[in-house]
Simulated assay, not measured.
Amino acid sequence: MSAIRVRRGMRPAVVSIAATLLVTLSGCGGKHEKRDYAVPHSLCGIPVGSETLTSFLPGGRKLTTKQKLSDTWGMRCEVRVDSRLVAQTSLQWLADAPNTLYFVGRQNNSKLDHRADNGRFLYSGWEGFGETRNCTSEKLLGAHLFTAFQMESPDHQDADAMKQLITEFTNAVEKTDICKEGKPFPR
């Protein structure tokens, strides 16, 4: 092995560089903040794969969910960590909606570069949209039920994980009474 020789005049520079590296590397830990909360197995009553969801959630002390109804046609679930909105899921009945692409066209700023199951699922690294199978509401003009799972920050992106998340979420919605009975959302 050869020894690294440092000239006397370079010692302060080496110490300075080492100190800068230490400060820089310690600042990189922000994305791996500690979670004091348990990652939920469901969001507003709809089961989710907590292992898949974990990679998208930030550190913090407390996770809360709140269901919000827009009308009998739509419902969303807000996910907050320490009062900060971090994710949102949506269920939306749409009449005359031929596919997921039509549903996504109603969303703002969606840049979906992946598709699965012949376009049934459209997703990116931080948001996904899906169409349920056999979820039709005769009470709402024969509307079909669509799903969305959107992270509020694109800081962490993982297209494979989002595909799994929107697929699992949509499949779980298909097993609910909302789907099976074609129920409008309560006001």
Rank of each mutant, 00 (worst) to 15 (best):
W93C: 07
D71E: 02
F149I: 03
I178E: 06
T20G: 15
A3E: 14
D82Y: 02
F146Q: 08
H114V: 03
L53H: 08
T176H: 02
V14P: 05
N99C: 04
M151R: 12
E131N: 06
R35P: 01
F121Y: 15
R76E: 08
T54K: 12
T176V: 05
V23T: 12
E181P: 00
A159W: 06
A38H: 05
K175M: 13
V39R: 06
D177T: 14
M10R: 05
R76A: 02
I46N: 04
S153P: 05
S110I: 00
K183F: 06
D96G: 08
T170E: 04
I4A: 10
Q88R: 11
Q157P: 00
R80Q: 15
I178G: 04
M75V: 10
L145E: 08
K163D: 09
I166H: 11
N99S: 14
F129Y: 15
L69C: 01
L91Y: 00
C28K: 04
I17V: 15
H156E: 10
P12E: 10
H32A: 11
T132A: 08
V104S: 04
R8A: 13
D36H: 13
T147Y: 01
N171G: 12
D117S: 14
D113F: 10
L63H: 06
G119S: 07
P40S: 04
K68F: 01
H32K: 11
R61S: 14
K66N: 10
S2V: 13
K62C: 01
I46M: 06
E168K: 11
G125I: 03
Q88Y: 00
S50T: 02
G130C: 06
S50F: 03
E174R: 10
V86I: 07
D71V: 04
P40E: 08
K34D: 11
G142P: 05
G142C: 05
S137I: 10
Q107P: 01
G182H: 06
